[in-house]
Amino acid sequence: MVENVTVGWQVGADVTDWQLTVESRARRVRADLAALPAAEATEVARKAAEVSLEVVDAALRSADNKWWRSGASWWSGWHIERAWRALHEAEIYLAAADPDLPAKLPGLRARVRMYLDETDPRRQAMEQPEPDKAMVIDAMRAAFDASDDSHAAARALRNKLIVISLALFVLNTVLGLIGIFKPGVVPMCMPPNLALQQALCPTGSATPSGWDVWMVQLFGALGATISVVLLLIRRRPDLSPYVLVGYQALVKILLGAALSAVGLLALGAGLVSGIVYVGSQAALLLWAVLFGYAQQVGTRLLDNYADRLMDEVRPLPERVAGPKR
């Protein structure tokens, strides 16, 4: 979703969801700064907040120039993380300059609870009836640092998923090309046995074909796609700048294609002889689908880790009042 807004009340930009969130919070900080009474004691914090907001605007402007943004910038995510870190610094300086900070403690406590454990001394100090302002600022900084570190962790996981996807794509492509130019080198056919009078190949013929490997990979990807549908159904919406679900789905599909080929190699080698019966092309392709879906056993660990990481990057409303899980 793209929406036309004005960044920092000065610069027009088409922003994505995460940019809209940062820009909206930056506007609120500016409004709160403008409402603060003039006082020498808060002037330093006010100026520091304004400098941080300028950094936010600069990062958002650089993120909008998609034609200019280099691949290294996208890979490192510097504009995203710089915008969030600068916004958090501005919110901290705003709290330091706000004379009505005690009235806002309930909301600040809720934000700190999102990221700091109950045993953290900074959270415990902030939970006191009348905490010192320095303690409040220290707890806010620790909570925001944890949030920013979660953004970096999400980016690192995204990059790893991309590398894994490229490796699996190359592997599947190489296997498919070998199958085309050297049919039978990657044996996908079931040899004759007591149940089969002749060899049975994925394409339905009795001799290896150049499309056997591709056929198996296709049906393995089909099985993996079923697990992707389940992933999309249970995945909760979020406004994280790093959306991992697409990369998770890609890894599942490519891994399912590879595992289907490995599974049929195991069937052809007789490793499960007497346990698995394959008497027709339909049964052979069905096993390819099942082997493709079987990648869910391993990638479920990845899904659970990604879910926990996304909860840190994008806290949900029900986590606001409760302890960190």
Rank of each mutant, 00 (worst) to 15 (best):
L265F: 04
V272A: 12
Q295N: 15
L265A: 07
A249E: 08
Y242C: 09
L290G: 07
Q281V: 14
L301D: 00
L301G: 10
P237M: 11
L232A: 12
W287A: 03
Q296D: 12
L255M: 13
Y242S: 09
G298W: 15
A269I: 01
V289N: 01
Q248W: 14
L264N: 10
R236Q: 10
Q281D: 07
V245Q: 08
Y293I: 01
A294C: 10
G298Y: 15
A257M: 13
I233Y: 06
L285C: 04
L267Q: 00
V276N: 03
S273C: 00
V228R: 03
L250Q: 09
Y242W: 13
L254Q: 10
V278W: 03
G292N: 04
G263V: 00
A249W: 07
A258R: 03
A282E: 09
D238E: 13
Y247T: 07
G274M: 12
Q281T: 15
Q295F: 02
L255V: 06
V278R: 02
A249C: 13
G263K: 00
V243E: 11
S260W: 00
L239C: 05
A283M: 11
S260A: 13
A288C: 07
Q281K: 14
G256L: 05
Q295T: 12
L232W: 10
L286F: 13
S280H: 07
L285V: 14
L285R: 10
S280E: 03
L264H: 03
L231G: 05
L286N: 09
V228F: 11
L290Q: 01
A266S: 10
V276I: 14
Q296I: 12
G256K: 06
G298E: 01
L301R: 12
Q281C: 11
V228Y: 07
L271N: 04
G270W: 12
V289H: 00
K252W: 15
L285G: 02
L284G: 05
L284A: 06
V272Y: 08
Q281R: 15
S240F: 08
V289T: 08
L255S: 11
P237N: 12
L271T: 06
V245G: 00
L232S: 04
G256H: 09
V276K: 06
Y242R: 02
R300F: 15
R236E: 12
S273W: 00
F291E: 02
L230S: 04
D238A: 09
D238V: 02
G274K: 08
S240D: 09
A258T: 03
G279A: 05
L255N: 07
